[in-house]
Write a protein that binds this DNA or RNA. Sequence first.
DNA 1: CGGAATCCAGATTGATACTG
DNA 2: CAGTATCAATCTGGATTCCG
Lengths: 109, 109
Amino acid sequence: MLLLETLEEHGRLRFTRLGGLTGGISQKMLTKTLRQMEEGGLLTRTIYPVIPPKVEYELTDLGRSLGAAFCGVWHWAEQYKGEIEAARQAFAERNGGALPEGASSLPGR
Amino acid sequence: MLLLETLEEHGRLRFTRLGGLTGGISQKMLTKTLRQMEEGGLLTRTIYPVIPPKVEYELTDLGRSLGAAFCGVWHWAEQYKGEIEAARQAFAERNGGALPEGASSLPGR
DNA sequence: CGGAATCCAGATTGATACTG
DNA sequence: CAGTATCAATCTGGATTCCG
């Protein structure tokens, strides 16, 4: 979803730039995710046979349509982010009083 | 998403029934996922202190709103399912000719 | 019935080093 | 620059057993 977003916003991008703009993604996951998206027809991968290498990624129509489809979820998350946080607080308070130590159901980070 | 769907369709459901209707989910994942959804405020968990035990799950307004938000993605998947499959075929043919054995990029089953 | 606890194989991911 | 290769640490989810 993040890559979809970045590519929607910036259009055609090179590997390193794409990684930088997306942020917080390792080079390995970037490669893997891009390949998967290419395989699924969500984007095109264009290789320029030059030195140093240059590879550009760009969403296909299919990719853009998926981005559009995710808009609803995107907005939902934005809109109810606070509500979810509140629900979590309430939940933790409800039955989180005496946890066996380090039992935060949601991973830290 | 599957649980969201099932609960949207059938309303208030008991644990075992919910698992059965959803299909293909282990008891462990069912429990875990339901707890996470409860924690996020997507559903309510109602315990009836009877024997044998009886617990019912029902979406909250927040949960239903998420279900609605996913509609776009749901439709997208339905609509472009074939296109994706075709893209994968093309991809496999493009550079899948001489794979080092057992290199199907997508996990089989 | 609705879980919790335990075990474990396999998948995911980050970190690191190497390359044309 | 745009990867690939490899190792190690998690994390995941299924299967199974036990319990009030």
